[in-house]
Amino acid sequence: MSKHQRIYAVVRQIPPGYVATYGDVAALAGLPGHARLVGYALHALPEFSDVPWQRVINAQGKISLGRAYPGGDLHQRHLLEAEGVEFDANGKIALKRFRWQPSC
């Protein structure tokens, strides 16, 4: 399985209403320290992929899409809010509440 495929397999496991950080996904894919690779892999997804890319956020509990895709951060936020994920007034997600903790 390629590195991207390993990343996608992990992201597919994140249930609706939960998020994981890029670093979480990298570690769970057996690629500790390669959070940027997770970002690159998600960026490479085709438009109508079944991988729930919106559930991956940065380590600060925020969305990181704004610079790469103008308006992409709002789209990601809307997708997450539709799943029940809540944001504070600063656009941050409470990781203690919404971070996915797989039962390995």
Results as ranks from 00 to 15, higher is better:
Ala89Lys: 14
Gly33Ala: 02
Pro46Asp: 13
Leu37Pro: 00
Gln54Asp: 04
Leu65Val: 07
Glu86Cys: 09
Gly91Glu: 13
Pro52Asn: 07
His34Arg: 02
Arg77Asp: 03
Leu37Tyr: 03
Ala9Asp: 12
Trp100Thr: 00
Leu45Ala: 06
His75Val: 15
Phe87Glu: 02
Phe87Val: 03
Phe98Ile: 06
Tyr18Val: 01
Arg67Asp: 11
Ala35His: 09
Leu42Met: 07
Cys104Leu: 13
Val85His: 06
Val38Ile: 09
Asn58Leu: 04
Arg77Tyr: 00
Gly71Asn: 10
Ala27Phe: 03
Tyr69Val: 14
Val11Leu: 00
His4Thr: 03
Gly30Asn: 06
Phe98His: 00
His75Ile: 15
Gly72Ser: 11
Phe87Thr: 01
Ile93Gln: 04
Phe98Asp: 01
Gly84Tyr: 14
His34Ala: 08
Val38Thr: 11
Ser2Phe: 09
His75Met: 15
Gly71Val: 08
Gly71Ser: 08
Gly33Asp: 00
Pro15Gly: 06
Ala94Val: 10
Pro15Phe: 08
Lys3Ala: 09
Arg77Leu: 01
Ser103Pro: 01
Thr21Ala: 15
Trp100Glu: 03
Pro16Ala: 15
Leu28Phe: 14
Gly91Ser: 12
Pro52Glu: 02
Lys62Tyr: 05
Gly39Thr: 15
Val11Gly: 00
Gln13Tyr: 11
His78Gln: 13
Tyr69Asn: 14
Val56Gln: 01
Phe87Gly: 04
Gly39Ile: 14
Ala89Gln: 12
Lys3Arg: 15
Gln101Trp: 08
Lys96Gly: 12
Val85Trp: 08
His75Gln: 14
Gln5Ser: 14
Glu86Met: 11
Arg36Met: 14
Ala59Ile: 03
Arg99Glu: 02
Ser64Phe: 09
Gly72Leu: 02
Ala68Asn: 12
Pro46Thr: 10
Glu47Gly: 05
Asn90Arg: 12
Asp73His: 13
Asp24Ser: 06
Trp100Ile: 00
Gly33Glu: 01
Ala29Ser: 05
Ser2Tyr: 13
Ser64Ile: 07
Ala89Glu: 10
Tyr18Pro: 04
Ala89His: 10
Leu31Lys: 01
Lys92Gly: 02
His43Lys: 11
Pro32Met: 00
Ile7His: 11
Leu45Phe: 04
Val11Gln: 03
Leu31Met: 11
Arg99Trp: 02
Ala35Gln: 11
Arg97Phe: 08
Asn90Val: 14
Gly91Trp: 15
Met1Trp: 14
Gly17Pro: 07
Phe87Asp: 01
Glu86Gln: 11
Gly72Phe: 03
Ala27His: 04
Tyr40Phe: 14
Arg36Glu: 15
Tyr18Lys: 14
Leu95Asn: 09
Gly39Glu: 07
Gln13Leu: 10
Arg55Pro: 00
Gly39Asn: 02
Asp73Tyr: 09
Asp50Lys: 05
Gln101Ser: 10
Tyr8Val: 06
Leu95Gln: 10
Ala94Lys: 02
Val56Asn: 03
